[in-house]
């Protein structure tokens, strides 16, 4: 057999065909909302963020200090053992300069791009990173390996969420 375009299915249409009524269509928005239980590990993680601290969890078998904390070690497949405070500093493992919003719309002209990064947190095991964003930095100055520190919300504004850290900013010197 060889593929022959004439024999292949799928009929392409332009989005305008729906608006013009050339094709029938149905628009629908499922209104689903969720309340995700945090559980012991992430619950404690968020409580500590509210206090301006970052907490990790240690497995005494592989000796990894893991962040975000988890009640079981996915490598040793056993419960983790200890809570360990780690620093609110770290280094940039990788980063991006993003001009697109979550729904693929573009950021407004003149707005600053999103600066997502994987931050390796000091005090956690080598390579243990979390997803966050960078701030107080010109995009072109960001480098892999750059030292950064958490910029926290004011204590009274914190709500026990990952966004209690506004962003990570470069450490001078």
């Amino acid at each position: 057999m060889e593929l022959d375009k004439k024999e292949l299915g799928a009929t392409h249409y332009k989005e305008s065909a729906l608006k013009e009524g050339k094709l029938l269509s149905l628009a629908k928005q499922p209104k689903l909302q969720y309340a995700w239980d945090n559980g012991p590990a992430i619950g404690r993680y968020l409580e500590e963020l509210k206090e301006g601290r970052i907490i990790a969890r240690k497995c005494n078998k592989c000796r990894r200090i893991m962040i975000p904390p988890r009640m079981f070690c996915e490598l040793c497949w056993r419960p983790t053992d200890e809570w360990v405070y780690v620093k609110d500093t770290g280094k940039v493992n990788t980063f991006s300069i993003c001009y697109v919003n979550w729904d693929a719309s573009r950021i407004k002209k003149g707005d600053k791009p999103h600066l997502p990064a994987v931050i390796e947190i000091d005090g956690a095991s080598e390579g243990m990173g979390i997803l966050h964003v960078l701030g107080e930095v010109e995009p072109e100055k960001i480098k892999i390996g750059m030292k950064v520190k958490a910029a926290w919300k004011k204590p009274e504004e914190r709500e026990g969420a990952i966004t209690d850290i506004l962003y990570f900013k470069p450490v001078r010197g």
Binding site: S96, V100, N101, W102, A104, H114, P116, T163
Partner: peptide
């Protein structure tokens, strides 16, 4: 809880 709040896009 730990990532969606940052408004990530797949491209990140």
């Amino acid at each position: 809880t730990t990532e969606q709040a940052l408004d990530p896009t797949l491209i990140w």
